[in-house]
Each structure stands twice: as structure tokens, then as C-alpha cells.
Simulated assay, not measured.
Amino acid sequence: MAFEVTTNRAAKARRAVIFCVNEAYFPYALLAASQVRALCASELADIVICAETGEIPASLSDLDIRLARLTLEGQTADMGRLDQKETVTYHRLFLPHAFKDDYDRILYLDSDIFIERGDFARLLEVDLKGHVLAAVRDEVQWFNPERDAHDFRTMGIRGKKYFNAGVLIINCQAYRDKDILSKALDANRMFRDKLKHNDQPLLNAALRGEWLELSPVWNWQHARRFPMLTATVPVGITHFIGKAKPWNDPDSLLPPRYSMAFQHFMARHFPDRPEIKISSGCDVSDATLGRQALRSWWHARKITRYLKRFPDDLVAKE
């Protein structure tokens, strides 16, 4: 496989937090990067943004971002139904190979996230016990671990745990040694036109449940569905799965504090971009609040039982 990586500077650490984004998501990756940097010193980990285009504003130069352009000769052409803008999501499949001379461990993050708290230095050092990666279960298995993910059923894989690929701690050497990339690309060639998601099921298919599970606080996927329950959980990373995003929430499905934070960041660092509309918040009628309270009560016992599997949220479980 042919890779070409061009960067604006050399690596400064053996650990990296990496985002893979297109031009539209570039500023949102920078917001997340600024939140990471506030929680993890530069000597402990590089922050890398893989993007085709994008320029870091002078106002964010202190973040010391490593910009990278990843060229995959003859690879993205085989990604089937995706247009060129969408192929960037597949770049995370190639990161342990593309940066094999630079990083021993990678924390991959999607850019549609909001970082609330967390010891990212310790997160990068989580004991992977020889496994390729650690991740958080996809939300389809939070309340029913036996439920098969849709794409797994399509691929004929049953009874395996299934992770959300928005937050991944990757052991780069193990990833290469176990040939995860080739296995994922084989799955893509076989199923690419039948899958609901992009590269997430490919990674899951390559690992078939052989990965370590992180506490859901590192990839909290319920910011919209259970707002009251979310307020009681010590969330580290909120992940805005689905169509509602802090920068595009016309139905005001997300709590307004997220759109307010994104609006402030964009106005300060990307003033030429369209202004983000602040969410008016969820309907606060008595009926809506009652439904939210009932839903939170209904799921509280299950989510509490799930969280108790992780008495230390910096220990990954088999």
C-alpha cells in the first residue's frame, strides 16, 4: 500500500490525538483540539489534524497543531458509494500505517464532539493488555448488550460487541501486526454497498469483538435523547451522533450550551464563517418535561448498572 504524508512539522511526542476532517469540519476539530490541549500538555501528546485543506488562525497558534495531509494512492478510489468529501472518514483506517515512524499510540477523535473533562494523559496510557484498541460500545448496545448492530447482521456476524468509532485508543504496532487494515478493506470490498455506516463496521468486522471496552463517559452518545440523565453522569466526551449538531440544530434538539460554545469559538477564530444560531433549547412544556423525566427514570437503572461496570473510567474492560 502506498501512503504519502506531508506535515507542517515533525512529531514531538510518541503519542498523538488525531482528527480526520474535511474542510467543513476543520473548525470544529480545532475547537475539540483546544479543549484537548487544555487537558493534556504538549510534551505528552501531539495534536494532529488530517485534512485536505485548512489553515489554522493565528489566534490558535499556541495550540501547536500538527497539520497533515494524507494521500492514499489507489485506496480511496475503492471506497465505493462515497463521494470525495466523505472518503476522509476512511483515513482513520490508515493512521497506524501512515504514522508508523512517529507514533506508538493514537487517540482518534471524531470532530462532532464536545470535551467536558478528563485526564487525557492517563487516557492515552490506558492498559490495552495486548489488544489492538479500546473503544466505547455503540449506543445500540448500551441497554441491550446482546443486540446485534444492523451492519453486523448485514455482514452475518452475530453475538459480538460492537463499538462506536468516534473515540478510539489504538495500539499502532498491534494494529499493524494483526493486519487490521487489510481485514477492514476486505470487508469493504465485500459489503461496501450494503452497509448503513462507513468505516465503523469495517473496523468492527476486522476485530470481531476482540477489543477492550471503555466507560461510556468517553463517548457519550445520548446528549439529545436523555438530557436529564446526561446531567447526572460525569461525561468526558459528548458525541453528537445523528443529524443534530451544535452548529446545525434547526429543531433545537440539543441543550443550548453547546451551540453557545460553538458560536463563541467560531465568532472569535473564524469570523468569516456564517454565524451559528444558538439553540432555543428543548420544548420546556410541562408535558415535555414530564416525558423527559419518565424516560430518564425508565433508563436510569440500566445506565447505572452499565456505568458500574467501570468503577474507574480509566480502566478498559474485556
Rank of each mutant, 00 (worst) to 15 (best):
G290N: 12
N171Y: 08
P201G: 01
G74W: 02
D119K: 00
K183Q: 15
G74K: 05
S285R: 15
Q35W: 10
K277M: 09
N219R: 06
V48T: 05
D251W: 12
T304G: 15
R66E: 10
A293V: 07
A24S: 13
V140Y: 01
H131K: 12
L185M: 08
D62R: 01
R295E: 09
L60C: 09
L39R: 15
R37M: 02
R81T: 11
T53K: 15
M266I: 15
L30S: 07
V126P: 04
L254K: 10
E43I: 00
P271L: 01
D64E: 13
I303E: 03
K302L: 11
L82C: 14
C50R: 03
L82M: 13
S111R: 10
Q263D: 14
T53S: 11
A11H: 08
L168R: 08
P311C: 02
R176C: 01
W298E: 11
A41P: 00
A135S: 14
T76L: 15
V217C: 05
N171C: 07
K160E: 12
I47S: 14
E86K: 14
Y28R: 12
L123E: 02
A98L: 10
V284Q: 14
A223K: 00
H91F: 02
F19R: 10
Y103C: 08
V235E: 01
A98S: 15
D151H: 00
K317F: 07
N164Y: 02
S252C: 13
Y175M: 13
F265T: 06
S111F: 14
W142L: 09
Y103S: 11
C40V: 05
P227K: 06
L107K: 11
P96L: 11
R291P: 00
E52S: 13
K277D: 04
C282I: 13
V233I: 15
N144Y: 03
E275W: 05
R224Y: 01
L203Y: 09
I276M: 03
I170G: 07
A45C: 04
A33E: 06
E73A: 02
V235S: 02
R301L: 02
V284D: 06
N248T: 05
S296L: 07
D110I: 01
E55V: 15
N8V: 10
F94P: 00
V48M: 11
Y306W: 14
L185C: 03
P96W: 03
P255F: 05
P311V: 09
F265Y: 00
L128V: 11
Q173N: 12
R176P: 06
A13W: 06
R295Q: 10
A205H: 15
F163I: 01
E23W: 13
L181G: 01
Y103T: 03
R224D: 07
I49Q: 00
L109T: 12
F270W: 10
I180N: 07
M79P: 02
L31H: 03
A300L: 00
V126Q: 02
Q200P: 04
A261M: 13
R224E: 14
D313M: 08
V132H: 08
M228E: 03
N204Y: 13
F26K: 02
T6I: 05
R122Q: 08
A135L: 07
A10N: 07
A41F: 07
E23Y: 11
I157D: 12
P216E: 04
Y108R: 02
A2Y: 12
Y28A: 10
D313E: 05
R92K: 13
A165R: 04
